[in-house]
Simulated assay, not measured.
Amino acid sequence: MLFSDYLSRRRLTLIVMVLITALMISACGAADTGNGNSNTETVQTAASDPSKAVETNSEGDSKVKTISTVHGDIEVPVHPQRIVAEEYLGSLIALDVIPVGAPGLTIKNYYFKESLEGIEDIGDYGKPSVEKIVALNPDLIITGNAEKTYEQLSKIAPTIVIPYGDLKNAHEELTYFGELFGKEEEAKTWLEEYDRRIAAAKAKVDAAIPTDATFSIMEDGEKSTWVYGDNFGRGGQAVYQALGRKPPSGVAEEILEKQWAELTAEMVSKYAGDYIIMTSNSSTMEDYKADPIWGSLPAVNKGQMYVWPEERSWYYDPLAVLAQTEELADWLSKQDR
């Protein structure tokens, strides 16, 4: 081997070693950056559902993600620990997400009040106490009605406003919150059981009641009567959505579009179906039978009216709808054809 060849090979070896060393230093630097203590994320804009939010480069419960809301894109904790929920408690409880505060009305919810023992009362539904919420030091606020309070609430903690009606049924609610809290599998499992029980309840009713029988969802307003659609509580979700029943044909389009109407005594017969689900805190079935107007309705004459109190009919969260559907199915399955 010539000496010149030897020098050439030595130079090549040195160059290769320098390049390898440089690459190793560069890789170590990148690894150190990734393991730093920064909690800042580069988060892409999310779509309207939480599953589209992107999480990057953060640690533990300090992670945040960006979601789109009616008030624009906001950053929320990936794992919130102290939630104040003015609305949607049924869906949260189904996913084992228990808030630290909620309105007194929802804390008393007939269908899950035991799950909320010890939860702080934040005041009236729709008009929460800002002072009480501040005292709870929340890291996330969830509400369906914050037109007047959003500016104040959003200064306390990230505030997600989901207007009532945007999530139209149990599937939309559980799916949304499952994605928000990273509990997609829990939501899927809960909904599978929900669907199974709803299907069983519907089968009981279909076996006992003609499929073309009409239903009315009503409430005693003392001086007037109110009639409701399929997304306004009082059993509407249970009857029209879960059991698949319909209002009287002459008023069905109006009721399902507007969702409510106030009736005078003279209008009641027009809106009365073959079956009436009536919310009343003061009148009984016997009272309706004795009333000249109500007693003349076929549904009342035949005993095809179900009277229950507001504390059982008013709520419309997934837990309530499931329980209401099974309660009404038990009653309907005992009716004569």
Score class of each variant (00 low, 15 high):
T264Y: 11
D96Q: 13
A22P: 00
K246R: 10
Y240D: 01
G101T: 05
A135D: 11
M1D: 05
E193A: 14
F177P: 06
I162C: 08
Y228V: 12
S91I: 06
N35Q: 07
D139I: 05
S280V: 09
T264N: 13
W226T: 07
E184C: 01
M17Y: 06
L12A: 15
P158Q: 10
W314L: 15
P309V: 04
I198D: 04
G165R: 08
Q304S: 10
A135G: 05
F3A: 06
A170R: 05
Y271R: 10
A290M: 01
V307A: 03
P128K: 03
P99Y: 02
L180K: 06
V100G: 08
Q237A: 05
A199E: 12
Y228T: 11
S58Y: 10
I293Y: 06
A157W: 05
E192A: 15
S58N: 09
G273V: 06
A203Q: 13
D287L: 07
L95A: 08
G273Y: 08
T175E: 13
V161M: 12
Q152K: 14
E87L: 02
K183F: 00
G118V: 09
R82A: 09
A252T: 02
A200S: 14
I156V: 05
A199F: 04
N39M: 13
S313I: 04
I276M: 13
E257Q: 14
D212K: 12
Q259T: 06
D206S: 11
D96H: 14
A31H: 03
A242C: 14
I83E: 06
S8G: 04
E120R: 07
E117Y: 00
I93A: 02
A200D: 15
K52S: 15
E193T: 14
I83V: 15
D287N: 14
R312I: 07
V64L: 03
A94V: 03
N281C: 06
L23V: 15
P99N: 08
S249H: 07
S26E: 09
P80L: 05
E311K: 10
E86I: 04
S269C: 03
N145D: 15
L105V: 14
R82Y: 02
E186Y: 04
L322R: 02
K202S: 08
